[in-house]
Amino acid sequence: MAERTFRIWRGNKDGGEFVEYKIDVGPGWVVLDCIHRIQMQHATDLACRWNCKAGKCGSCSMEINGKPRLGCMTRMNSLPDGPITIQPLKTFPLVKDLVTDVKWNYEQNKRIPPFKPKARNADGTHRMMQEDVDRVQEFRKCIECFLCQDVCHVLRDHKAHDQFVGPRFMIRLASLEMHPLDTEDRVEKMRKEFGTGWCNITRCCTEVCPEHIGITDNGIIPMKERVVDRYFDPIAWFLGKVFGKK
């Protein structure tokens, strides 16, 4: 057991401060263990959301030493010596202490036109090949921790929540657009409503994703390219002007 110091932000939307706690940390502990120990020993009213403690529910998102991470997947022995700072997510409104209100994300999801499958085959089934859904399955690993949404500077710093749905929903869009059975066309909305152009592909979403999803390379950039197909390909644009097509 070794004593470690934590600086945890305590407060609500009206204000607050960092409060220091010292506890003894055991071998193999993760940050969430430490928060539980602090709740037990020093602050029973410290608010923190968690559920699975296995990196699968996406509830325990927080900022540890300034980086958006899962509390339950951050091992204490991976952190440098010295006090450990723990903050709530910056991008979403604060409820209390480490808990933020992430409902904006669910609202974005509702705006996305849902899966619209092709007609069934003659034998009444839908069939697709593994190689056609490999790409989509990568995106299905998402645990909706919203760490990518938190770190994305478009939302985090520029508060462009009305212009950009954020990386999590860019890959949601990609998973639908690339789906071999889907017939819906979301390209226009991707550009005009969901904001593909707001992402400047600086890749922080990919860096923080605990599921190691290639958010930028496999999701956002392919969607930007589909937008280019429709809106920015000068040859297509020229042909459209000449032949009067849209």
């Binding site: 204000g15 401060e17 960092f18």
Partner: peptide
Amino acid sequence: ASSTAIGGHQDNFAATLRT
């Protein structure tokens, strides 16, 4: 340490608590 910024997040250029 006290902080007026909600969540302890400052908004000036290069602000971060990364160590």
